[in-house]
Design a binder for these strands. Sequence first.
DNA 1: CGGAAGATTTCT
DNA 2: GAAATCTTCCGA
Length: 201
Amino acid sequence: MILTRDFYLRDANTLAKDLLGKTLVHRTAEGIAKAKIVETEAYLGGDDAASHSFGNLKSSRTAVQFGLGGFAYVFLIYGMHYCFNVVASTVDRPEVVLIRALEPVEGLELMQKRRKTDKLAQLCNGPGKLCAAMGITKEQYGEDLCGGKLYIEELCCEPFIIKTTPRINIDYAGEAKEYLWRYLIAGNRFVSGYNVKSKIE
DNA sequence: CGGAAGATTTCT
DNA sequence: GAAATCTTCCGA
């Protein structure tokens, strides 16, 4: 079943944990793509130095974060890659959940074509990669996830253990980088892996 | 209005 | 280890 508005109207950390194991679906003219969420990170606007909306700073980029939960927050990073986020909580609470990695479920050929690689484990194991694979761009900024071409549904899946770690690539955020706001499915081989060079997770 | 930096990926 | 490449933010 497709997740309804109520599911998203909770704080970002709770939502980040609950989104693990759910399935992200995007229907486009090219076809349908489905992938299971295996890794997320929570960003809590006001009190989180790593968030784009730190200090409740509202801008044209973060505007959708201040709206109701259940909408897509997409932004361009480093001028070349998109990152897909789900807006959490309710109005005037700029909390979001960054989707960091997916496990491909359906529409594999389409994803392989978009990513220009046939290696399944490398299709969606990073924020920029999964956006390319799912066909998510700034066109999807502000999309309603409750009834549209882009949505998240709950399917039966194997039980799993949730693991928490510090977030990735936010060294600039001071003490906020210590917070254990990254969530992933323990042992899943589709989680982002470029940070495993120095440590085994 | 100009400059700096970023929730990344890919190749050498 | 560095480049690619552009939007956003902040200071002047």
